[in-house]
């Protein structure tokens, strides 16, 4: 399997998400954590980053979404929620982890 790309910065403040997508390869898993989870919200000025990207699978860490008061029905279609155990599974399944800070 391809690499796992983690993004922990808000897409409104830094271009980490944009870069992670731009420099990822086909089939990559992109996991949004910490302030990175804002990139998973639908109906924002940056929603297209995730919504219009094909050939990548997007995940968001549920505890970080909950902490920020973002309900699941506000997320972009196709973003899969994972808990810490799911995070570990992704790390195990992917070739390696690239952290985009």
């Amino acid at each position: 399997m391809a690499d796992l790309y983690t993004v922990n910065k808000s897409p409104f403040e830094k271009n980490s998400l944009e870069d992670a997508i731009r420099f990822s390869t086909e089939g990559a898993a992109i996991l949004l954590i910490e302030d990175g989870v804002y990139g998973a919200m639908a109906g924002t000025a940056v929603s297209d980053l995730v919504a219009n990207t094909t050939g990548r699978k997007f995940y968001a860490l549920r505890p970080d979404l909950k902490a920020r008061g973002i309900a699941e029905d506000r997320l972009i279609d196709g973003v899969e929620l994972v808990d810490y155990a799911g995070f570990v599974d992704l790390v195990a399944e992917c070739d390696k982890v690239q952290a985009w800070l």
């Binding site: 808000s10 302030d35 804002y38 549920r62 505890p63 909950k66 902490a67 920020r68 008061g69 973002i70």
Partner: peptide
């Protein structure tokens, strides 16, 4: 900017080991 997120209600930090 992202400061507006500070006021979003419904926060639950119980899984983060962080003060809500």
């Amino acid at each position: 900017d992202d400061g507006v997120f500070q006021l979003v209600k419904g926060s639950d930090t119980s899984e983060l080991d962080m003060k809500n």
